[in-house]
Amino acid sequence: MPCVMPPLLERNDSRTIHSPWLGDVETDPRCELLFPAGLPGFEDQRRMLPVEIPAQRPLVYLQSVERAEICFVALPVYVIDPAFRLLLSEEDRSILDLPEDCDPVIGADVLCLALLMPAGRSVQANTNASIVINLHNRRGVQCVPADGLRSRFRRLDDSGWTTLC
């Protein structure tokens, strides 16, 4: 299965991840994302592989390189909430290696994903805990606002996406 983004480096150091969910996934460091701080609850998972299955677009799988059984299902945040606005803290910018005066453009400079979680027969996502990936260096962070902003859950059901109170 192909990774979402084209390789940045030219090296041949491929290996296979035996994912119990995606099957055997070919990867090499050129395709991997680096999460220097891991993800909350998974702080030791720093290398993730973004996997896109064409028939399942726009779903994006975030497959751990270090533990094959860890795999998240995500969507670009704009699919969930077209009104999404990216807010980056000083720490987030530091992890992503983004200059303070840089106003990153979603899709051009950064990719913003939200993890999907089961909610009965449906799924929901917290768009206030988006995963932001710097497309220029493949560094990622899950942005969790510290300024009192609460979780903003959007749930998908037969009537589309709705915001939960």
Partner: peptide, 21 residues
Amino acid sequence: ARKETIAVAAENRQALELISA
């Protein structure tokens, strides 16, 4: 951990259940 990440950690663990279901 920063206190605000604790709830997100629980959400992330829940997110893992989607594919394992």
